[in-house]
Each structure stands twice: as structure tokens, then as C-alpha cells.
Design a protein around this nucleic acid. Structure first.
Lengths: 406, 406
DNA sequence: AGCATTTGGTCAGGGCCTGAACGAAGTGGG
DNA sequence: CCCACTTCGTTCAGGCCCTGACCAAATGCT
């Protein structure tokens, strides 16, 4: 068995193609001369590389640079919709899809209600495959090339096997999501990936706030965490990293679904908020109601100053801050992003968390922010994860297909 | 400003030189043909690369492969003492040095008693420079080339500036270790690095137990943590990652040196053990006594079954396990290594930690182990950190110098 | 119109890896 | 003892990729 791969001239080419794509992603349209300047490559090399990217359909001419002396540069930009990452999302109440191109623009977004725990994995995968088909059609319509599909699932995922090992909230166990989707859509297994919702959410937030060290905490009834350090996602030895919902916080606390007592998610999960802030008959406790609507009711109550709701939110915020402090002490991220239902109530949750962090954390300068992506973060992260492969190696988009197109 | 470095043919060469060095490090002496097989490179390329490494003095002929049919292979091996990493260690009671070559063999080891908090940074750096000088002399005597010096300090380090920001146990604040050592030894600033003791300890344990995800917890009076995920050290946004000693564990606990209450280190630090296991007048509480000797006394008492000692150890072990469980839940390492004073008492500490982890951690298969390197881990890690640069880029060892030598 | 300036393409050149060919250095059967 | 066989390591042509120099093209300024 080989110990590691040797480095090859093709790797060199790949690396420089990827470099140009990264620069174009960050700076928009640039001339070849500007690309040469920014990349450090020679003009000759840039010419050749841009020609290559053009043949692959990843870039196209984008006018000329107007201003200034001398011959105007012919601008080159990433072609809209050229390579598209597809992110799919399985939630308790819906399945969804997001399509993003290399520039980071969203080309397609859909969300379909689906009682996933009730209908079972096979029916849910049928629904998911239908949404995926629509996403793929949107990519085709844009004249693009799908870079891959990544499915977000709220549970424990074996990313190598493309399987969901255990997702208690979906009532899934050992579900072959990748294989099931491949069979239904005809997409190659190699182009399908499955990952945890918090991991993908962290990737989405990381792309939005590009600091190398970020922690994403997402909540609905369970709590998930996604950790990015040094720009890389932390998965742990067997993919359990970030499973912070079951941090033991209070040995005398209420019993948790995992069988232990006082787990963090019993303190800050949506269940805890509803229990403290509403009576059992209250409409916000109605599980058949859409999550967004229930959050809107709670928002409204908090905004008009309802005492019980405010008190419940403050209690959640404090407990959230205690747990966040532990994470921050250990990992020293530059940013902690609060996603999921926390993102719907930032006015009442972010401040208590900041206060706890200020009181309990050694390191200065940690930013606490509500997610701007909200419940869309996991699917967006899935799209980005799919794109990341092309970003690292643009030659994955083959030349031939595009030559046919011209 | 360039956005990122372009990839170059020299990078290609570097990468393949490094590949061969890695393979030789792992497998010992190999023929060129075997190297070609294992690396995936062609025989021609291997010949050229080996010739290059020979000129740099990094490898040398090492006999012939005896067995089998056909022409025997001329074995090539890493030259003992060729490139040497130097690790320096500043502790409360001593300064020390370790020299390791590319093969991982230790060529030199020294430890000199020094009351660092008492004598102040300048005098301590004098002592450290003397030890460093002896280490450099040992490298010269072995016909080697120093790959760099890395200093381990128990405190908060600004690795970019080579400065210790705050080391309460040494009573250091804003000490320019790299500059001070450069001035005293004549070593170039670029070859000097400073890092936290727990980070370096983690690197040493990581090299000994090569799993990609490892957490190292070290204790004396303070508690430090080093985290490696995906084979990379986690530093955090401003270098505070792994500062787990001040995790808030008990809001009603005793006051900590940091000003808060119930930090983890008040529960599991050496102070907690001594307070629970010995009276103030007890010799093990004598701060002038060598740490190793004090640990030996505690070991002896535990071995002969002293009830109070055993009880104190069990109490420490439980609290240690509680904190370790939090870390493990968050990061899912394959191994947790207990270093520092914990490593001196594994028979009584490892089991309670295992029990707590088994009760509190979701992920299966986490190994808990006492460090085999003990108090030597940080310096060893420093030596490895210095070597890592050469391992990533063998061309750092220039050819000319070695040509002069032959 | 002429000149300075900048762009971008072409071409020789050198570094690096590959694959084929070949001499070198052993083993083992006849 | 000799020769076939096997494996090793070097050499050489060939191809890929980047660089640097050169040059035609395109535009503003005088």
C-alpha cells in the first residue's frame, strides 16, 4: 500500500487553477494582468490557466476594464451557474434544497413540508429525491454542471458510508441516505455526501464570516454544535465531535432523552423554553404547527413584553451562555454563531450569552452573534460543501462536456 | 498583496523530498526500488531525489538488502543526527532541553534545577541559554544541523511574536523569550519558536500515538490542555484554545487564582490533591522539594494503601473524569492522554476517569491513557515541533553546507 | 499623428516527473 | 563452472508546466 500520494505536475496545475478560481470568487471580475499580479503567477501562466478554465465553462469574458491608461484589460469572471453545489436538508418538518454557484449566489431554493418522523425514511427519501430532481433541473436550466449533492441530517452520520447512524428526532437508525438517493435520482454515489446539520451549518456561517475559528450552536428540540478551527471542520475520531447537546450541566436536572440527567439540551432546547414560557395547551406547544410560525408567536409575545416569555428567554439565555462559555474556553473561537431557533430570538438571547461569556471566559474578544441564515444554514452549508471539491480541484469539471457546449 | 502563493515546480520537489523522508522515518532503511514502490514515484525520480537528500546530508547508504532473488538493493536510511530538533523547557522548578533527530531518536537530554519564579525572567533565560548551548554543541558533535529551537512555557504565549504574554506560575508577563534567547545564543530569530507547554505536550503524545484526534491534559498546580484534531494542533483565534483549567465546574467551589469560583483546576490541580490528601505540615506540601520526589512519596502512600491518600486520589480522579467527559463530548478524540502529575499516578487516576467517561460520554471507543513521557512531554514536543519544519520541507537543510562536509 | 502605457499572446528555456532501455549484481539450476 | 533469470539503479528522450523576454494590440494624452 502506498504511504501517501506523490506530488505530480497535474497537482501543480490543479493548485494554480484553484488559486485563480479563489481569487475570482473573492474579487469578482478581473483582467488577466490583474490575476497575474494577485496570484503571483506569470502572465503567460495566467493566460494558459484562464484558457483552461474557459474550456471548462467555469469562467467567461465579462467586458473590459474601462478606466486608466494603456490597453484596457479583458475582464474574466466566474460564469454564473457554471459549477453548482446542491445542498439538501432533512428536517423534522420539511425537506429542502439550496443551489449555490461558485460565486456564492443562490440559484434555487425550495422547501417542502414533510412529517419526516411520521412517514418513515423511505417516503422521506422519495420527497427528498423529488426536491433534488428539481434542484438538478434548475442547474441544467442555468447551463451549469452539478458539483455534487450534500444532504444535511440532524443526527449522527457516518460520512464515509453516506449513512445516518442514529437520528432520534427523525426516528431514523442506519438509513442509507446516499444509496437511497442515488437509486432515486440516478446521481453517482461519488457525487453524494451526507453530513450532520450542525457541521454543515457551521460551514455556511464560516463562509459568511470568514474567520478561521468559529463555533456554531444550533437549537430546536435538540442542541447541535459545529466546530471549525484553523478553517477546517472538526469531526473527531468517529464523527461525534460537536455533540454538545449532552454535556452534563446539572447532575440533579431533568431526565434527558439520552437517559442521563441534566444534559445541556434539557436546559436550552426548545422544550425547555416552551415548558418555562407556556402551558401545555398553549398553541406554541402544538407540534403540528410550523416551527417558523411558533417562533413568530414567541417573538410577538416577547416584543410586547409578556413577562413569562421574557423570563423564560432570559433563563434560556443564561444557561446557553454557561454552555457556550465552556466551549469558548476550550476552543477560543473568534465567533460563536447561534443558529436554529436561537437565531429567531437574538434580541433576548444574545445579550445574556454575552454576559455569561464575559464573566466566565478568560480570552478576550470573542464575538457572539445570531445567525443570519437561520434554519437555512444547513442546506446552504451542504451546497458549499459540495462546491468545496470543485474549489479545491477545478479539473473535476471536465473539459470535454464544455467543448461540446460551445 | 498576493492572495495566496502560486504553486511552483520547487513545491513539487519539496513535496516529494518530504514524502521520501516521511517514508524513511516510518519504515527505516529501504532500497531505492522499495522507496519507488511505497511512494508511487518512478524509479528515476527516486534516484534523483535520494541523490538530493544525500547531498543535504539527510540520508546515507545503510548496507544492502540481503535476502531474495535478483540484484540486492542498496539501502538508504535517515542519517542519525542529521537534522536535529531542539526542544527547550521552562518549568517552575527547572529548565531543560531535549534533542531529537529525524528518526525520532533522542540524542541529548538535560535538566537543570532553577527556581524560575524566584530568579526572574532574565536569570532564567541565562540558564535556558546555557542549556540550549549545550544542546547545540551536542548537535554539532553528532555532525548534524539544528532544525530549530522551540521553547515550552507553562502559560499564555504569543507564538507569532515569540513572547510569553502571561505565565502566572512563573510570575512572567510579556517576556520576549525568542529575542532574549537569540541575543544570548546567536541563533537566528527565525529558528526560534515559543509555545505553550500543553500544546507541545500534545504534539509529543500525538507523535507517540499516531491517531489524528487526541487530547492531552496536563496537571501540576494548574491544568493545561492541548487539542489535536485531524492531525493539527488547535490554537484558537488568539492562542487561548485548550485553556481548560478555568472551565467553571462548580459555582459554589473554592476561589481560583483567576478570581472566579470553582474552576476545574481548583478541583483537580495538585493543590487540591495535597489539600485533600495531606496536612499543611506534611513534607509532600514542601514547595522546595523536587516535584518528582513529592510524587514518589504520594505513590508510596497510595501503594501501601494509605486511606486518606487513596480517598483523595479517587476524588481527584472523579473530578478529572467529569471535566474530561466534557472535552470528549465536544471533540470526540480517539485518545485522551493524562500528563503532568497525573502521569505519575495512573493506577489510581485512570480508572475513575474511565468510569466517568463511560457514564457521561455518548461516543464509544475513547481511550484514556496515562502519558509515558510524563514531565518530559513538553520539551520532547518542542523538539518535534522544530523538526516538523524540516519534515515539511527538507530543502531547509541547504545542500552547500553538506557538500563542504564531505 | 505620435508616443507612452498597459494588456495579453507566443516562444524558447529550464525544472521535474515518466517510461523505456540498459548495464550491474546477485541467485540458482544444469 | 556457466548461463538463464531476476531485481536494482542509472540514463535518456519526452512531455507537462511555469518563467522571462519579446512583441503586437489597444487606448489615452499631447
Amino acid at each position: 500500500m502506498a504511504d501517501s500520494r506523490p506530488v505530480d505536475q497535474a497537482d501543480l496545475r490543479r493548485g494554480n487553477l484553484a488559486l485563480l478560481v479563489r481569487i475570482l470568487r473573492e474579487h469578482g471580475a478581473l483582467s488577466r494582468a490583474q490575476l497575474a499580479m494577485r496570484s503571483g503567477l506569470s502572465k503567460a501562466a495566467v493566460s494558459s490557466l484562464v484558457g483552461d478554465l474557459e474550456l471548462r465553462g467555469l469562467v467567461h469574458a465579462a467586458g473590459v476594464s474601462s478606466g486608466g491608461l494603456g490597453r484596457p484589460g479583458r475582464l474574466v469572471a466566474l460564469r454564473p451557474g457554471s459549477a453548482c453545489g446542491i445542498g439538501l436538508d432533512v428536517h423534522i418538518g420539511h425537506v429542502g434544497a439550496v443551489v449555490t454557484d461558485l460565486r456564492g449566489e443562490t440559484l434555487f431554493r425550495r422547501r417542502v413540508a414533510c412529517e419526516v418522523p411520521a412517514v418513515g425514511p423511505e417516503r422521506a427519501l422519495d420527497e427528498l429525491a423529488a426536491v433534488a430532481g428539481a434542484a438538478l433541473a434548475a442547474v441544467s436550466a442555468a447551463g451549469g454542471h452539478p458539483a455534487g449533492l450534500t444532504v444535511s441530517v440532524p443526527g449522527l452520520v457516518d460520512t464515509d458510508a453516506g449513512m445516518v447512524r442514529f437520528a432520534p428526532r427523525l426516528r431514523w437508525r442506519d438509513v442509507s441516505v446516499a444509496a437511497g438517493l442515488a437509486a432515486r435520482t440516478g446521481v453517482r454515489l461519488a457525487d453524494l455526501a451526507v453530513d450532520n446539520d450542525a457541521n454543515l451549518g457551521a460551514m455556511a456561517e464560516h463562509a459568511a464570516a470568514p474567520v478561521p475559528d468559529l463555533v456554531y450552536v444550533t437549537g430546536d428540540f435538540g442542541i447541535g454544535g459545529g466546530v471549525i478551527t484553523g478553517g477546517r471542520l472538526v469531526r473527531g475520531a468517529i464523527g461525534f465531535a460537536g455533540e454538545i447537546g449532552h454535556m452534563p450541566m446539572d447532575p440533579l436536572g431533568p431526565e434527558c432523552s439520552c437517559g442521563r440527567r441534566g444534559c445541556w439540551e434539557t436546559q436550552v432546547g426548545l422544550g425547555a423554553l416552551l415548558q418555562a414560557g407556556a402551558d401545555p395547551g398553549d398553541p406554541v406547544c402544538d407540534p403540528t404547527l410550523d416551527l417558523d410560525e411558533r417562533m413568530a408567536i414567541i417573538r410577538a409575545r416577547a416584543e410586547r413584553g409578556d413577562r413569562r416569555t421574557r423570563h423564560a428567554l432570559h433563563q434560556i439565555g443564561s444557561a446557553l451562555g454557561t454552555g457556550v462559555s465552556i466551549v469558548v474556553n476550550m476552543l477560543n473561537p473568534a465567533v460563536v454563531v447561534l443558529g436554529g431557533y436561537f437565531a429567531a430570538l437574538p434580541e433576548w438571547l444574545v445579550e445574556p450569552v454575552r454576559a455569561e461569556v464575559a464573566a466566565r471566559v478568560l480570552a478576550p474578544g470573542v464575538r457572539i452573534a445570531g445567525s443570519t441564515l437561520g434554519f437555512a444554514a444547513p442546506a446552504t452549508g451542504g451546497a458549499l460543501a459540495s462546491l468545496r471539491r470543485v474549489l479545491a480541484d477545478p479539473t473535476l469539471i471536465s473539459r470535454q462536456i464544455m467543448e461540446r457546449g460551445t
